[in-house]
Design a protein around this nucleic acid. Structure first.
Lengths: 155, 155
DNA sequence: AAGTAAATTGACGTTGACGTAAACTTCGTG
DNA sequence: CACGAAGTTTACGTCAACGTCAATTTACTT
């Protein structure tokens, strides 16, 4: 029987690169600065990723393109998410070994980060919307202007 | 009589810098790459700006911060706006000397640029909104999580 | 087994968007 | 008018975010 993916469906660099439209250099750079480490390596050293890595990368790209966040800022967000992930797992396994205070603080700090993020995005959306409005009006004026000045090939 | 601003209220670098929260270097750099030229100079060579320059700069900053546009892209937008400005003036003064075809083409191209811009902004707003939604949900989950796990100092 | 496309590390190069230092000039106030 | 703060040009420095080249290895196909 030909088994093909014993350890949870990993994919290589080429697949990641193709799906996300980035270069392998970018991928390695992101690893360099601690943005995302491959889930594993082949015996030969080739990087292996999984679906959750793809999701994280998509998130990185969106934060970058849509919010203009620096990779440093994005790393902060990612780290907080990782922290929360660990925290949740911690709680699920009732591994209440760690200091309760510490855990509460970690959770609080994650919540603050999320609140900040949402606030930032709200303000950007607000700003963008008002800009869009302004440009839309200019566009409409220009179109009216055109149809006034050039009453040409129109039915 | 002490006249003070014979030629339409110009202001210096310091005032611009203070109002916009940027450095003078940035201002000079923007001039270097053709983003905004001062409206005049003092006899001694000091740069002078006016209110419309401030408005343009504010626009530049917003495009940069909110859309993550490069200065190059912003310059394209600015150039198109300048073009339209000239075009409008041209029409107002009925200086219909230029080729009608040319003017129509210029106007068309400006309209296309505006349409592109509005579309770009729509897509960004869309993307941002959906991200905001996702983060908002995570935030709410985390808050619920916290109040479940730590039923402490609450009335 | 052998060949070839693709991946790896290491290193230096590049581009955009300014920062910064130096040498000098101009402006506004006492 | 003197003088210190702020402005000017010239030029080199910097930092992020990759690009690119070279030498070597690995992975897959035939």
């Amino acid at each position: 029987m030909d088994l093909d993916g014993q350890i949870g469906d990993t994919i290589g660099v080429d697949a990641v690169v193709r799906e996300l439209g980035i270069t392998s250099r970018t991928l390695r750079y992101y690893e360099e600065i601690g943005l995302l480490t491959p889930v594993a390596r082949t015996p030969g050293g080739h990087r292996l990723y999984d679906q959750s890595a793809i999701e994280r990368l998509k998130n990185v790209i969106r934060l970058k393109e849509n919010l203009g966040f620096s990779l440093q800022e994005i790393r902060n967000v990612m780290e907080a998410e990782q922290e929360l992930e660990a925290l949740r797992k911690n709680f699920r396994e009732s591994k209440a070994a760690g200091d309760e205070e510490d855990k509460r603080h970690a959770l609080d700090s994650y919540i603050r980060i999320l609140e900040d993020l949402v606030a930032t995005m709200d303000s950007k959306i607000q700003s963008l919307t008002s800009m869009r409005q302004a440009y839309q009006e200019r566009l409409e004026r220009s179109i009216r202007f055109r149809s006034e000045k050039f009453k040409t090939e129109e039915s």
